[in-house]
Design a protein around this nucleic acid. Structure first.
Length: 267
DNA sequence: AAACTGCGCAACCGCTAATGG
DNA sequence: TCCATTAGCGGTTGCGCAGTT
């Protein structure tokens, strides 16, 4: 990552206490750790630290491997699908980051935690409500999550049109059958989060995020959401306290370039 | 152009749970 | 059963960067 590449090249070395290094990892340390794990495998982190020649704690080695060096770890933008999954799983489990991360292949608990703190908590702050308050949870349920689903669905439709227009109809069929059944009605949603996770696992392994949009279409995930939620009543009850124009939260919340949708809501 | 501010993210810290002798 | 060690988790911190004043 650029940030720490810069840090590595800086003149200030990581602090060393009793010959133990702290702070950003160097390229050499990364290579040392990767080579050691390639030969000896993961686990027994204290012996990794001792035997690899690294002047790090076992904890530090484990963290570096899990959060950064692991080959399957993904960095970069959290997709709308992943955002939706984080919101949904956090509603269910709270700050159980590692548990949430288990359902998001390639994402680390640290990354999810950082996402929650930097994005979600920020918006709660902007709205002047506690991130755990009913008010903010309602905003997530009735506004943020439906919006994310809409974006995912829109992306899916766009993908279908693109594929169909390009004349590769076979590809569409291939994508549809990737979910095991061509019958949308037969896609039972006994455990939505598990289904979402399964779906996501498929999508990440295949490296094709548009598939998730397909899945949302087929599984009627959005319908399920609305059905399982308590009656929203009048949204004014939920959002009455929020000055959307002043907070400017719509744009930043949804990460939209042009949030036409929010404008349509006539807040 | 310089100073300031906020953000994003890697890494650390402290605690608890799990494991093995 | 107890104790030491190790692994894992969640919270917090520190630093570089980018945007703003």
């Amino acid at each position: 990552m650029e940030l720490h590449d810069d840090a590595r090249s800086s003149d200030s070395p990581p602090s060393e206490e009793g010959n133990l290094r702290k702070g950003p990892w160097t390229v050499e340390e990364d290579l040392l750790l990767m080579n050691y794990i390639a030969v000896h495998g993961e686990g027994r982190w204290n012996s990794v630290a001792r035997c690899s020649g690294l002047k790090r704690t076992g904890k530090s080695c484990r963290l570096r491997w899990l959060n950064y060096l692991r080959p399957d770890v993904r960095h970069g933008n959290i997709t709308p699908e992943e955002q939706l999954l984080i919101l949904e799983l956090h509603c269910r489990w709270g700050n159980r980051w590692s548990k949430i991360a288990q359902h998001m292949p390639g994402r680390t608990d640290n990354e999810i935690k950082n996402y929650w703190r930097t994005k979600v908590q920020k918006h709660a702050k902007q709205l002047q409500c506690d991130v755990n308050s009913k008010q903010f949870k309602d905003i997530m349920r009735y506004l943020w999550m439906p919006r994310l689903m809409e974006r995912i669905r829109a992306a899916s439709v766009h993908q279908h049109e693109r594929v169909v227009n390009s004349g590769t109809h076979e590809l569409v069929q291939e994508k549809s059958s990737a979910f095991g059944s061509s019958d949308a009605e037969s896609f039972e949603m006994q455990d939505p989060s598990a289904a979402a996770s399964d779906c996501f696992a498929v999508s990440t392994q295949g490296g094709d995020h548009e598939m998730i949009g397909d899945w949302f279409e087929k599984s009627h995930f959005s319908t399920w959401w609305l059905e399982t939620l308590p009656s929203p009543g009048n949204y004014d009850d939920v959002f009455g306290l929020v000055d959307f124009d002043q907070s400017g939260w719509g744009q930043s919340l949804f990460g939209m370039d042009d949030d036409m949708w929010l404008q349509r809501q006539q807040f």
